[in-house]
């Protein structure tokens, strides 16, 4: 089953074309990594997919439902009500966590499912505690974000996203704000999620991680997909000149 389908996305900021005819689709249980230099458009692609940015042209489809449909080269978005229901099918983990600093860890994880999804509080809190346990944060539920390390904060934000029971989880450079030691603990969490067949799209600069954890790797540059395919082939044996050049620093 296709969870996400993106067809021919175009996006410009003024005269600057950031995304130029990008298409991709993500099957249930698939892990897709997007790599590429800064300014290649990979974060913008993720922001368009998560409705934080509106695309100029192209389709955006979640589970067969159109969030945006291309009409004569322009993206026409669904109604606010439909978008709200589509939003609940995905989650996003930010580079700099964006936890709510005035909420305890438990409330960060449990408020949206109760407030937005209107699920019963006891059930949500029980699930939130279970998620925190999985993240190794059982003893932190009453802590506030400022009392946690970057790695712990990022694990809370992953738990916050998972508490909404998304069909697909996006990661926008989840380890870029962390030191190498903390990076390891986040990558481990994402690996565990992959082992549980969580559908994920990960924008990352961790090449060996992308190779090991993903089913599909996309290399982007200048707003286009330069090369994509099997992770091992892309990372260890790229064909395109630009990909070879970019990856030369890693291999």
């Amino acid at each position: 089953m296709k969870i996400l389908e993106i067809n021919h996305i175009r996006k410009s900021f003024g005269a600057l074309e950031v995304l130029n005819d990008i298409s991709l689709s993500v099957e249930e249980g698939q892990v897709v990594s997007i790599i590429g230099p800064s300014g290649s458009g990979k974060s913008t692609l993720l922001r368009c997919a998560t409705l934080l940015e509106t695309m100029d042209g192209g389709d955006l489809i979640y589970l067969g439902k159109y969030a945006a449909r291309d009409q004569d080269g322009k993206s026409v978005y669904a109604s606010a009500k439909e978008l709200k229901s589509i939003r609940s099918s995905f989650g996003l983990v930010f580079q700099n966590f964006n936890l709510f600093p005035h909420y305890s860890v438990l409330r960060n994880v449990s408020e949206a499912p109760t407030l937005i999804q209107k699920r019963p509080k006891e059930q949500v809190v029980a699930e939130a505690r279970e998620l925190l346990r999985k993240m190794g944060l059982s003893d932190k539920e009453d802590a506030y974000p400022y009392q946690l390390s970057g790695g712990q904060q990022q694990r809370v934000s992953i738990a916050r996203a998972l508490a909404m029971k998304p069909q697909i989880l996006f990661f926008d450079e989840p380890t870029s704000a962390l030191d190498p030691e903390l990076t390891g603990e986040i990558l481990r969490v994402i690996r565990d999620l992959a082992a549980e067949h969580m559908t994920m799209v990960i924008v990352t600069h961790e090449m060996s991680f992308a190779r090991d954890v993903s089913d599909h790797v996309i290399f982007m540059d200048g707003g286009v997909i330069v090369e994509e395919g099997n992770p091992y082939n892309i990372i260890n044996n790229p064909k395109q000149e630009r990909t070879i050049q970019f990856l030369s620093r890693f291999n």
Binding site: T50, L51, L52, K84, R87, S88, F90, G91, L92, F94, N96, N98, L99, F100, E111, A112, L115, I116, Q117, R160, A161, M164
Partner: peptide, 23 residues
């Protein structure tokens, strides 16, 4: 207020009023 607070709320499905009054 950092824009990330609005974005985190938006992705979680908070409406405008919910974002303003709660976050």
């Amino acid at each position: 207020m950092p824009v990330g607070q609005y974005e985190a709320a938006a992705v979680l499905g908070y409406g405008r009023a919910e974002t303003f009054f709660r976050i």
